[in-house]
Design a protein around this nucleic acid. Structure first.
Lengths: 120, 120
DNA sequence: TCATTATCTCAATGTCTGTTGAGATGTTGA
DNA sequence: TCAACATCTCAACAGACATTGAGATAATGA
């Protein structure tokens, strides 16, 4: 992840519809979701609007797509998301791990295999 | 961290100068850096430009400021950064921790007390 | 108080971005 | 091949954003 990629990723995430799409796909898991399904989840956004935002996200490297029959299935690009987090926090704390440990804790708890209710 | 805050944070991070400022301050640690110092680190950006971006970042909650004599010292708002990471990755992986563990690893390694060379 | 330094505020300008609607492309089943 | 469906592409418009330069505010030391 270099600065240009990070900038593209943050630009993509700075728009309400796109941020919702990414979070929707993050929660959807690796199997992803069809463009139409995503559009319905976004308050029934128009197809051209979805296409615009999905291709924006794909160009930014935050989602990936594959065709399945008539549908195009989008899913979160987890490695890119990890890379983005790492880029933003790189060289954090300078030997004071307590300042960024909350971020680690937040992510770790998310990634524990679900036992009951998960997130806070 | 709610959606509006996250959106403001990502908007703030989607601009080259502001992203550099945040990363500069993340690396600078909790003691922070004066506005003028930051401006010099940003290829000598003009004071009005720095002021614009720093107040943008402060409004977005990503940095905090304090006056020290004539200078205003800015520092990274580490809890906000942690919250942002948590918000983006919330509900990730749905029982498949392997998909977002790389993000945890990236952050964890950053946060280990420095022994030699730190980041990857 | 005055000069100096550090930073912020404001208005003007050019550029970028999101939305919309119409139409094109690709896929499926008959 | 045809009709139906899913998605993408394109041009146009309104609104938001970054930069600039001039001037205002705040703190310091003499």
């Amino acid at each position: 992840m270099d600065e240009k990629q990070a900038l593209d990723a943050f630009t993509a995430l700075s728009q309400e519809t796109r941020l919702r799409i990414v979070r929707f796909l993050v929660a959807a898991g690796p199997q992803g979701s069809a463009a139409g399904e995503i559009g319905q989840a976004m308050d029934g956004a128009s197809s051209s609007r979805m296409s615009f935002h999905l291709s924006h996200l794909e160009q930014a490297g935050l989602v990936i797509s594959r065709r399945e029959g008539r549908s195009i299935i989008y899913s979160a690009a987890y490695p890119a998301l990890s890379g983005l987090v790492e880029f933003l926090m790189r060289d954090c704390c300078q030997g004071h791990p307590e300042v960024c440990n909350p971020a680690v804790a937040a992510l770790s708890s998310c990634c524990e295999p679900a036992k009951g209710a998960s997130h806070a």
